[in-house]
């Protein structure tokens, strides 16, 4: 048996870092969101005033906050299923016994995940350029009308969603692939003997067996997508007409451009509560589905 203080010596560095640089700041963020912390308070803490829930109430009256919320939800609600479809499709292809060069394809499809988000977002910015971009050139040469991807408020968010699907589907693909491999082969054999078609096998064996994986992937993707920030920062700078301003983008500019740190803290907290509520709701929904 080790002595009781040995364990604490081993734990101390990590726990101190987590307390000082995470736990305390999170608690402070809530405190901060109840104050009017701004540039003057940053210079001298005496200028700080407690204003209770005023920041939260003024957020509810602020159109820009509501539109940031809408854009973030748009990104999550459209981006999450698309990413999961792409991931599952790629995993099914990779898992097929007929596929060749599996490790090459796996690496190729996974590559975007490890790339630096900012750097590949910069590529997107040029690929989807309306006048000189390669994407529009390909569209035009196929006889399709060019799209003003990044200049049209209706198209900017879909372009970012496309980017996110490309960047992230490989991550879930690996998780799905492992899930597929853990499904016992006997199940498929039995189904084949009973004369079940490939589609029936997918519906009645693969999908139900992947359910826990699906839940995990759904929650991970959703949590990640609520934190949309760097993509609009690099690709669209929040535009055009603020159509890609997400909650975190708004928080960043409120905090570090306008130095309204109290307001920005309230925004961060609202995002956290929203993520939490949606995750819990999602879990409930999946559990209820299991019982039926």
């Amino acid at each position: 048996m080790n002595k009781w203080y040995t364990a604490w010596l081993f734990l101390a560095p990590a726990l101190i870092v987590l307390c000082v640089f995470f736990l305390v700041p999170v608690l402070a963020a809530f405190g901060l969101s109840l104050t009017d912390f701004d540039l003057y308070a940053l210079a001298d803490f005496h200028n700080l005033r407690f204003i209770a829930l005023d920041n939260y109430l003024s957020l509810l009256r602020r159109p820009l906050f509501w539109s940031a919320l809408r854009h973030t939800l748009y990104f999550v609600v459209a981006g999450m299923p698309l990413t999961i479809f792409a991931s599952l499709g790629a995993a099914l292809l990779l898992n097929s016994k007929l596929a060749r060069c599996k490790s090459f394809f796996r690496t190729a499809l996974f590559a975007p995940v490890v790339t630096t988000l900012v750097a590949v977002a910069v590529i997107w910015r040029y690929l989807f350029n309306a006048r000189f971009g390669l994407v529009n050139y390909v569209l035009v040469s196929m006889g399709i009308h060019p799209v003003n991807w990044l200049g049209d408020p209706r198209w900017a968010m879909p372009t970012i969603i496309l980017f996110a699907v490309w960047k992230n589907f490989g991550y879930n693909m690996i998780i799905f692939f492992a899930g597929l491999q853990s499904i016992p082969e006997e199940l498929y054999e039995a189904a084949r003997i009973d004369g079940a078609s490939a589609l029936a096998q997918f519906r009645h064996i693969t999908l139900p067996m992947l359910r826990p994986t699906m839940l995990l992937v759904g929650i991970l993707t959703m949590a990640g997508y609520f934190q949309l920030f760097a993509e609009p920062y690099v690709i669209t700078e929040g535009g055009p007409l603020q159509s890609t301003v997400s909650v975190l983008y708004l928080m960043y500019s409120d905090a570090f451009k306008w130095w309204n740190l109290g307001v920005a803290s309230a925004e961060a907290f609202v995002l956290f509560l929203l993520m939490f509520a949606v995750t819990v709701g999602f879990l409930r929904l999946m559990r209820r589905g299991e019982r039926v």
Binding site: F21, F22, V24, P25, V26, A28, A29, L32, F37, L42, A223, F226, Q227, F229, L248, M251, A255, F256, L261, A264, S265, A268, F269, L271, F272, M275, F276, T279
Partner: peptide, 13 residues
Amino acid sequence: VIPSQVAMIPLFI
């Protein structure tokens, strides 16, 4: 479950 961005503003201060 707490996104790291919640901590960023107090951390900066």
